[in-house]
């Protein structure tokens, strides 16, 4: 159950950041997407490229989780769970890619 004290609501403090911060993050997310798309267009392959792709994906995901989902100021369990999910999925994709190289 969420309880929100009425006194806290009147504060200038924001749980959702500022419009400027949200806009800067959007620019970073779009730029990162263009990098990922360019890698695809170039046809580049290999462990370093896949490492780059999923590092970018992890960075974008972290921005969504911490800023857009506003988990940066949530009880620590929640950002840790979401970032832990990202880490686990990206790591297992990396392991599977490695396995495919060895096959």
């Amino acid at each position: 159950m969420q309880t929100q004290g009425s006194s806290a609501r009147a504060l200038p403090h924001s749980d959702h950041g500022t419009p400027l911060r949200a806009t800067v993050i959007w620019v970073v997310l779009i730029a990162a997407t263009i990098v990922t798309w360019s890698v695809g267009e170039s046809g580049a392959t290999g462990p370093a490229i896949v490492g780059l792709l999923f590092s970018i994906a992890f960075g974008k995901g972290a921005l969504i989780i911490l800023d857009y989902m506003a988990l940066r100021r949530a009880p620590l369990m929640w950002p840790m769970l979401a970032l832990g999910w990202m880490t686990l999925v990206c790591a297992l994709i990396g392991i599977a890619y490695w396995k495919g190289l060895a096959a």
Binding site: L11, A74, P75
Partner: peptide
């Protein structure tokens, strides 16, 4: 004056708690 200092807000999960369990299930 506000009862909570603006530079040290309490940590708060936005929205309904139930949606976060739903989101976790979806992520899994």
């Amino acid at each position: 004056l506000p009862a909570v200092a603006s530079d040290s807000p309490a940590r708060r999960l936005p929205g309904d708690l139930a949606i976060w369990f739903f989101i976790l299930a979806e992520l899994l």
